[in-house]
Amino acid sequence: KVLVLALYDYQEKSPREVTMKKGDILTLLNSTNKDWWKVEVNGRQGFVPAAYVKVL
């Protein structure tokens, strides 16, 4: 399983997205889209901007 680090806070803007806080460790589920990556955080799955996270 691939983990990513949240570099910035992100507030979800649609039901398909998830909120994350800077420093959160998320599970990367899909990174085929260069702009939006699907992650799991706190038991929820959704998209975050790829530029806001870094693969650990």
Rank of each mutant, 00 (worst) to 15 (best):
E12K: 14
E12P: 14
L28D: 00
N30T: 09
P15C: 09
P15V: 13
T32D: 15
P15T: 10
V39G: 00
S14I: 05
A6C: 08
L3C: 08
V2W: 10
L7M: 12
K13N: 11
V4F: 05
L3S: 10
V53E: 00
G43S: 10
D9V: 02
R16N: 15
M20S: 01
K13W: 04
E17V: 06
Y10W: 13
N42P: 09
F47W: 14
R44W: 04
W36A: 03
K54N: 10
K21W: 10
V2M: 13
Y52L: 14
K54E: 13
L26V: 07
K1R: 09
K1M: 12
V48P: 00
V53P: 00
W36H: 04
R44H: 11
R16Y: 14
Y8N: 11
V41C: 08
Y8R: 11
V39N: 00
V53W: 01
K38L: 15
M20W: 01
K38Q: 15
G46W: 03
K21Y: 11
W37Q: 02
L5Y: 13
Y52R: 06
Y52T: 08
S31H: 12
A51I: 11
V55F: 13
M20K: 00
V48A: 04
K21L: 10
A6R: 00
D9L: 02
E17N: 06
I25R: 06
A6D: 00
V18C: 06
N42D: 14
V55Q: 08
G43P: 02
E17W: 03
N33F: 09
K38W: 14
Q11P: 07
V48T: 02
Y8C: 08
L29Y: 04
L5K: 10
T27C: 08
V53H: 00
K34C: 08
T27K: 08
D9A: 07
K22A: 15
L7A: 04
L28C: 05
V2C: 11
N30A: 12
K22L: 06
V41I: 15
S31E: 09
G23E: 03
Q45D: 09
D24L: 04
Q11C: 08
K13H: 14
N30Y: 08
G43D: 10
G43Y: 12
K22Y: 05
Q11G: 09
Q45H: 11
K1Y: 15
I25Y: 07
T32V: 10
L28N: 01
T27V: 15
A50D: 02
V18W: 04
L29P: 00
E12Q: 14
K22P: 03
Y10P: 00
G43W: 05
T32E: 15
F47V: 08
Q45R: 12
W37T: 04
A6H: 01
A51K: 13
T19M: 04
T19V: 03
V39T: 01
V2Q: 09
V4H: 03
N30V: 11
P15N: 12
G46H: 02
V48F: 00
E17F: 07
P49C: 02
E12V: 06
K21G: 05
Y52K: 08
P49M: 03
D9F: 04
P15I: 09
W36V: 03
K38V: 14
V4M: 07
V18S: 03
D24N: 06
V2Y: 11
A50Q: 07
R44Q: 11
K54D: 09
K38A: 08
R44M: 09
V2E: 10
V39Y: 00
D9Y: 04
L26D: 00
S31G: 14
Q11V: 14
A6E: 00
Y8A: 13
V55S: 05
K38C: 11
G46Q: 02
D9W: 03
Y8G: 06
L28E: 01
S31W: 11
T32R: 10
L56E: 05
V2L: 14
G23C: 07
S14W: 07
V4R: 01
M20Q: 02
A50E: 04
Q45S: 13
D24I: 04
K38F: 15
M20F: 10
D35Q: 11
Q11E: 15
S31R: 08
K22C: 07
T27H: 09
V53L: 12
F47S: 04
V39P: 00
D35S: 10
W36C: 05
L29V: 15
K38N: 08
S14M: 08
Q11F: 13
N33Y: 08
V55W: 06
Y8V: 14
K54M: 14
V48C: 05
S14H: 11
D35F: 13
V48K: 00
P49G: 01
V41T: 12
Y52W: 08
L56H: 08
Y8P: 00
L29E: 04
E17L: 06
M20V: 12
S14K: 06
N30I: 10
V39F: 01
V55G: 05
K54L: 14
